[in-house]
Design a protein around this nucleic acid. Structure first.
Lengths: 160, 160
DNA sequence: GGTGAAAAAGCATTGCA
DNA sequence: TGCAATGCTTTTTCACC
């Protein structure tokens, strides 16, 4: 699938505001509603456009502590990783979990909790109890300069 | 503002699917449409509910490389930080940028690009040219176990 | 604070130029 | 691709429980 300038504009607008009606979207990109709807449908069918979600304000919810956690495992076997993955996916405090290269760590987690007490409970009660976890290194977010869900939409022709 | 069980259910549903109509939402939480709409409005007014966005699939867009970058600065002055912040906010490749505690680094960035070539261009052409940047350490995401926008909605009474 | 119904507005969709 | 008309869904408001 090839994206032209209009497709990219559609993607940019929807990334900024997923509640746009097709009418409003069409107006913003300078197209009439029907071709606009057709393009959006094609982008959905191609899997480029995914879910629409509502973002909440962590502060308003009293979630004032965000931690980035680097985790090392004792052994790098598929077993270890799969088990870790499955457990971590169930923790609502964990927003992101990546297996990474480089560094000393194997995993990076982004965790959001109410306060340091809750964080300690999460760390001692859940994370460090997981099999194979040998090292845990916490960093805390002091300031959130940018926290976006927007992806850059490439200039050229990407292939879906 | 106090959240009861129904409010929390609303927030959970909307975090999963931001395109829900008030009708569908009301049905899911077991309430009739009008009080449901009232609650949603109140949550928006209180700032708990923020924007609604459409998520794209990085892979479908040909964005196959995600990097976590740790950055250290030469001096920890407000000037340095503000300048860095302002520049980084303009880079579309940067999804997240945090000022963090601990570690050797001062900032953590999450960057999404097409491939290693593009990453190198970003690093050399943009990031390392910023004033005050002394250390850059890259990790690459090998596997994305969890990548969510959902926040945990606390059990007790948070205050907005 | 919740329910149900009714009215009004806005929307997606379709067919055609 | 653009336009127009149809028919629907949705939001909103109201009186009542």
């Amino acid at each position: 699938m090839q994206l032209d300038r209009i497709d990219r504009k559609i993607l940019q607008e929807l990334q900024k505001d997923g509640s746009l009606s097709n009418l409003d979207l069409a107006e913003r990109i300078g197209l009439s509603p029907s071709p606009c709807a057709r393009r959006v449908k094609a982008l959905k069918d191609a899997g480029v456009i995914g879910r629409t979600v509502t973002l909440l304000d962590p502060k308003a919810l009293g979630l004032s502590l965000t931690a980035l956690i680097h985790i090392s495992m004792d052994r790098h076997t598929p077993d270890r990783f799969e088990h870790f993955e499955a457990e971590v996916a169930n923790y609502p405090e964990v927003q992101e979990c990546y297996l990474i290269t480089g560094q000393a760590a194997d995993f990076v987690l982004k965790v959001v909790v109410k306060d340091m007490d809750t964080y300690q409970q999460f760390l001692l009660g859940k994370l460090t109890r997981l099999e194979g976890v040998t090292g845990v290194q916490s960093s805390f977010v002091m300031r959130r300069y940018k926290d976006s869900t927007e992806l850059p939409v490439p200039e050229e022709y990407p292939i879906a």
